[in-house]
Amino acid sequence: MPSETPQAEVGPTGCPHRSGPHSAKGSLEKGSPEDKEAKEPLWIRPDAPSRCTWQLGRPASESPHHHTAPAKSPKILPDILKKIGDTPMVRINKIGKKFGLKCELLAKCEFFNAGGSVKDRISLRMIEDAERDGTLKPGDTIIEPTSGNTGIGLALAAAVRGYRCIIVMPEKMSSEKVDVLRALGAEIVRTPTNARFDSPESHVGVAWRLKNEIPNSHILDQYRNASNPLAHYDTTADEILQQCDGKLDMLVASVGTGGTITGIARKLKEKCPGCRIIGVDPEGSILAEPEELNQTEQTTYEVEGIGYDFIPTVLDRTVVDKWFKSNDEEAFTFARMLIAQEGLLCGGSAGSTVAVAVKAAQELQEGQRCVVILPDSVRNYMTKFLSDRWMLQKGFLKEEDLTEKKPWWWHLRVQELGLSAPLTVLPTITCGHTIEILREKGFDQAPVVDEAGVILGMVTLGNMLSSLLAGKVQPSDQVGKVIYKQFKQIRLTDTLGRLSHILEMDHFALVV
């Protein structure tokens, strides 16, 4: 994948999101292997301009796509893939009243899908469409860049269908997702969380590099694949309309690839034109409109599966009536509230959605109805927002919020430890010299600072030695090549209790 991002070429006709291997024109390309080798690009942008032909009021008969309808489940399912879809609609009884809503608040519980998330729908649909058009064949390999849930859905379907599955996901995604993927037989590649989507090191860039190296491999490409919004247009939206008897006044959905909100909203605009569509985008993402909503100094966020630093091709923002931004604290607070007060075992993005819903639905009156999409299960986040310690460490809970008995030293300040200034190293000294210094002084790690004293990161003896043994660096290389740029900081005025929580999850903390 090139470091400079080429513009994806656009073909003359058809839909841009065809499933299957992508040609340089962004659509299915038939021909000899030699032709494909000559024409197939190194990668295709996940934010390529959409060429979708959908228009409100256009006859369904003019759609270029294969459409399906929700099917009634048999008493005995032939395999677990038949437990994807037909998820329950559940009334939220307490939270709406707590925040003064007059309307009825309903939750579409997508964590009841077989793999635990709304992404099971698009995973199965992308595979079925690729099999139907002859792209996927027995023994082929599926590769997908994902925040985890699409990966789980694909790995689940691949396990049943017999495909090899490789999932490329950023490091910030939970260990629970990784464990589930491994249990399903998927191979996992992790990428830096802070890598831009168009960087060769991003999950998108690495996935395309693997595709170019592995024979008979395919990126189904949830960011561009029409099967993504079509899955929701054909099934999720129809289920909502049936469950609500066609009567709903507002739908609120958090947005990642945009397939969920695009597919549902398009069908609702056709069948229930008075329904307002509300999009939820986390602070630090750029999906919301108008652009002024996205202006923030924050560039990272903890909530998973929603928000991006690019506009995915499948996201149709014209069908969203209003956007709201959400933050991590309210997302996790509301997710825990949904679990504790409503018994809905949902993930953090569901918290984002409901946090926005109780604001947006203030305009609705008694007798009206708001539906929220709860995308995934708490299963993926047992060591994250479900953990009091994690919430404390991230600053989303305060010590006084917890009532468990603490040891005698818990409320003492870090400054009472009488710490001395640490050994520091410059980023320009060599790895070999740094190892000598650390061994001589008896230290395992040291902060790396520039000549102005600005902290650049941390270097550890173990990481340097393993990097040297693996051949990633040489003793003569500058130590700046092996620094940890993500590390926890703590102030002298913070409590030892807070430091204790940090050290339970990290090997060190830097006192500043």
Rank of each mutant, 00 (worst) to 15 (best):
A8T: 15
G11A: 13
G11Q: 02
T13S: 02
P16I: 15
R18H: 13
S19T: 02
P21N: 13
P21L: 11
G31L: 02
E34G: 11
K36D: 02
E37F: 11
E37V: 14
K39C: 06
R45T: 07
R45S: 09
R45G: 10
R45A: 10
R45K: 05
R45L: 14
P46K: 02
P59S: 12
S61I: 04
H66F: 10
S73E: 02
S73N: 14
I76V: 02
I76P: 10
I76T: 02
L77W: 05
P78I: 05
I80V: 12
I92F: 10
L101D: 05
L101I: 02
F112R: 02
D120A: 11
I122A: 05
R125C: 09
R125G: 08
I127G: 02
D129P: 02
A130I: 02
G134A: 10
L136S: 05
P138N: 10
G139Y: 08
T141K: 15
E144L: 05
P145S: 02
T146L: 10
S147Q: 02
S147F: 04
G148R: 02
G148D: 07
G151R: 02
L156P: 10
V160I: 06
M173T: 09
E176P: 02
V180D: 02
L181P: 02
G185V: 06
P192A: 05
R196P: 10
D198Y: 07
G205W: 13
V206N: 04
A207T: 08
W208Y: 06
E213A: 13
I214S: 02
H218N: 07
H218R: 13
I219D: 08
L220N: 02
L220P: 04
L220M: 02
Y223M: 07
Y223D: 02
R224S: 02
A231V: 09
A231N: 07
Y233R: 02
Y233G: 05
T236D: 06
T236P: 06
L241I: 02
D249G: 14
M250A: 06
L251G: 02
A253R: 02
V255W: 04
T257V: 02
T260V: 07
T260K: 02
I261E: 06
T262H: 06
T262N: 07
T262L: 05
T262A: 12
R266F: 06
L268K: 07
C272I: 05
P273T: 05
C275Y: 02
